[in-house]
């Protein structure tokens, strides 16, 4: 078992909660894990990326080699395209469609995505909207994790346990809202 994931987003969007949930899940399963994060300067609204590697064998590099990622999981559409060189030929790309426009020259990406969809398995989901509908706008990242979960070789229940571990301190209500968000995202990807 091995899943190499590129997590992408913009500084401040909190992609690390996704990584933390998967990390907790991996640890519960006694899997090996390495997860390289972006801290520092780029966190001020810049592009951020995290390499997350989970395996049942020891992992060497903290960074995923190019062409080896099984999944690109992005909480922002343009950022999902920045690391395409890492995606393996069989890999999937799961992205939020909600744009984060903190730059003046944000490009129109519709054509790019339609082109790529012919070659790559792409799931596009408006996670922000879905999270609002559930009544927890902050849970958009968990919607994303749910939408990406079919492409991650860890069982659903184990990821959910990971989410429980991470949000435990915030109370049962928050835990449930986040699990609900996860399930909604997962259902969306399955029905696609």
């Amino acid at each position: 078992m091995k899943t190499d994931i590129i997590l992408a987003g913009v500084g401040g969007q909190g992609i690390l909660s996704i990584a933390a949930s998967l990390g907790a899940a991996a640890l519960n399963e006694d899997f090996y894990l390495k997860q390289a994060e972006t801290h520092g300067m780029s966190q001020r609204g810049g592009a951020v990326v995290s390499h997350l590697r989970i395996s049942d064998k020891p992992i060497h590099s903290d960074l995923i080699p190019q062409g080896k990622a099984d999944l690109i999981l992005s909480v922002e559409p343009m950022e999902s395209l920045r690391y395409l060189a890492y995606l393996s030929p069989e890999g999937s790309l799961v992205t939020n469609t909600s744009e984060y426009k903190n730059i003046s020259n944000y490009p129109d990406l519709e054509d790019t995505f339609s082109e790529l969809e012919k070659k790559i398995n792409i799931v596009r989901i408006d996670a922000d909207k879905m999270a609002r509908e559930i009544g927890n706008p902050k849970a958009s990242n968990m919607v994303m994790l749910g939408a990406a979960s079919p492409f991650i070789s860890i069982d659903e229940e184990i990821i959910i346990k990971g989410i429980e571990t991470i949000f435990q301190t915030k109370g049962e209500k928050i835990v449930q809202l986040n699990i609900e968000a996860f399930k909604a995202g997962r259902a969306f990807a399955h029905n696609k």
Partner: peptide
């Protein structure tokens, strides 16, 4: 790599 980031980025 099989894919490269699009120029529109």
């Amino acid at each position: 790599p099989d894919w490269n980031s699009p120029d529109t980025l």
